[in-house]
Nucleic acid binder design. Structure first.
Length: 482
RNA sequence: GGCCCUGUCGUCUAGUGGACUAGGACACCGGCCCUUCAAGCCGGAGACACGGGUUCGAAUCCCGUCAGGGUCACCA
């Protein structure tokens, strides 16, 4: 088994693929699937391919294709062959491979493994509902299997166009899944799938098989939701006389309510994460650990370390619930301990625009999301602060500030150290405990009772702004009294 | 409803018949630090879905029950 896994069925190089359909943004589940394919290819010095499955003409959009590629690049999941890169097995967009599917369909026709179906979508829908109502499995009854030429002509004159169905050979099919082990299916329980739609475009199950074969894919790594497609696809491979690739069905990522992840759960697309202030290294690290475990008592791994450790033996076979909080912790850890200042700065600037490097330097140890740096900068830059005086002891605050404002003027703002010393001096001079001085000061400077360390806040603001803000607060406090 | 997959702290997981008084991480709670709030450090609470087997011995193997998820499209 080991040898098969590593060499693949074609005995050569490992070739994996990520095959998204451009009908929406890349979400966290897709990213994880892409990542696992990438990891496995890299681990085995193989090739990772990006294939665009755009056979759904109505829903596929060029712009989504671009978005998906951008998000993948942001995560640094780079493909070796793909629509933008080319390769020896292209084109890599299914809409550009129609001629190939036609040829393969003809083979199936010749072998008698397919038949024309003239049923309309409405008819099929009614049929399905009826079966479900009778609590029977909704399986196509093969009513078009033995149509005479005359009947076909009749349908055609009615204006119907045929689709092509694959004739499922009824048998007990057994196959080995790299993660779930042996899987046994009674194929008589499977409907004959439509492989070419009446508009001449192939459907997923057919195009996928044809491409996986012609692109020499050795390992299909995809989500568990495809488990039930696998027997259909294996049967099509067999009908075509092709060896099928090895399958690894990875567990799904579920939302906190334990259902399939969807837009309504929020923060599920890679782009959303980016905008929220996540760093790609953290997202990749977190996502890699969803359904895979290196079985060590640590969780922070560089992509190189993950590649070295990646192995199907370590992929779990049960679904994982997506937890944004934990991913935030990873983000915090990467910002605070792993990433270099320059890199963090670049990420913030990609997201926002120019940022004062000092903010990152001074605050990276406590930040969870990149956007916090931006908030600090905006708070610092603000000309006129409006104070929310509702939950604050105005009298006490202004009392203290009035007392110390002159000493504040004399503070040495040239370094953080001198500021710290000066602040201590003020505490001593007026006999103030830390919170007694810090709370009012912090509030006057930032309209908040929490945030960046106070001496740093003063340092970043500079003397002029500090005095200005304290005075502004004092004014606001006076007005509030009246 | 049929079929398929799955069930260890709230969540991610370690565990492959004895080293399990079930380990780690996030979150939570408490303490320390004290330059507030945080961050950091230290500590605490918290799980083998249930019931039968097999075995000297089961979280680990088998069966059943229950629960969750997926899928049954001219979507992928």
């Amino acid at each position: 088994m080991r040898i098969i896994i590593e060499k693949g069925v074609f005995g050569g190089m490992v070739r994996t693929r990520f095959a998204p359909s451009p009908t929406g943004y890349l979400h966290i589940g897709g990213a994880r699937t892409a990542l696992f394919n990438f990891l496995f290819a890299k681990k085995n010095n193989g090739v990772f391919i990006l294939r665009i499955e755009d056979t759904d003409l109505e829903r596929s959009k060029q712009e989504y294709e671009g978005n998906i590629m951008d998000d993948l690049k942001w995560l640094k999941i780079e493909w070796d062959e793909g629509p933008d890169k080319g390769g020896n097995f292209g084109p890599y967009r299914q809409s550009e491979r129609l001629e190939l599917y036609k040829q393969e369909l003809n083979k199936l026709i010749e072998k008698g493994m397919t038949y024309e179906c003239y049923c309309t979508e409405e008819e099929l829908e009614i049929q399905r509902k009826l079966q479900l109502k009778e609590k029977k499995p909704p399986i196509y009854d093969r009513r078009c299997l033995n149509l005479t030429e005359k009947q076909k002509q009749q349908f055609i004159t009615e204006g119907r166009k045929p689709s092509f169905r694959f004739l499922i050979p009824h048998q007990i099919l057994e196959y080995e899944d790299l993660i779930h082990g042996k899987i046994k299916v009674d194929t008589s329980l499977i409907s004959d799938p439509i492989i070419v739609k009446s508009n001449g475009i192939p459907t997923y199950n057919f195009a996928c098989v044809v491409d996986d074969y012609h692109m020499k894919i050795t390992h299909v790594i995809r989500g568990d939701e495809h488990l039930d497609n696998t027997p259909r696809q294996i049967l099509i491979f067999q009908a075509l006389g092709y060896q099928h690739p090895l399958y690894a069905h990875i567990p799904m990522i579920l939302a906190p309510d334990r259902t399939k992840l969807s837009k309504r759960h929020g923060a599920t697309s890679v782009n959303e994460l980016k905008v929220m202030g996540f760093v790609p290294e953290a997202v990749v690290n977190y996502v890699a650990l969803l359904g895979w475990s290196p079985k060590e008592n640590r969780e922070v791994f560089s992509i190189q370390e993950i590649i070295e450790r990646f192995d199907f033996d370590h992929i779990l076979d049960h679904p994982a619930v997506y937890d944004l909080e934990k991913m935030k912790w990873f983000n915090h850890y990467y910002i605070s301990n792993v990433l270099e200042l320059e890199k963090i700065k670049k990420y913030v600037e990609d997201l926002y625009g120019p940022i004062n490097e000092k903010i990152i330097e001074l605050e990276k140890h406590r930040v969870y999301l990149l956007t916090e740096f931006i908030e600090i900068q905006e708070m610092l830059d603000k000309d006129e602060i409006e104070y929310d005086l509702g939950n604050v002891d105005i009298a006490a605050f202004s009392d203290v500030l009035r007392k110390v404002i002159n000493s504040l003027q004399n503070l040495d703002f040239s370094s953080l150290e001198s500021l710290k010393e000066g602040l201590k001096g003020i505490q001593k001079e007026y006999n103030l405990k830390t919170p007694q001085l810090y709370k009012p000061l912090r509030f006057a400077l930032s309209n908040s009772l929490e945030g960046i360390e106070l001496p740093k806040l003063l340092y970043l603001l500079g003397k002029e702004k500090v005095i200005k803000r304290v005075n502004r607060f004092l004014n606001a406090a006076d007005k509030a009294k009246v």
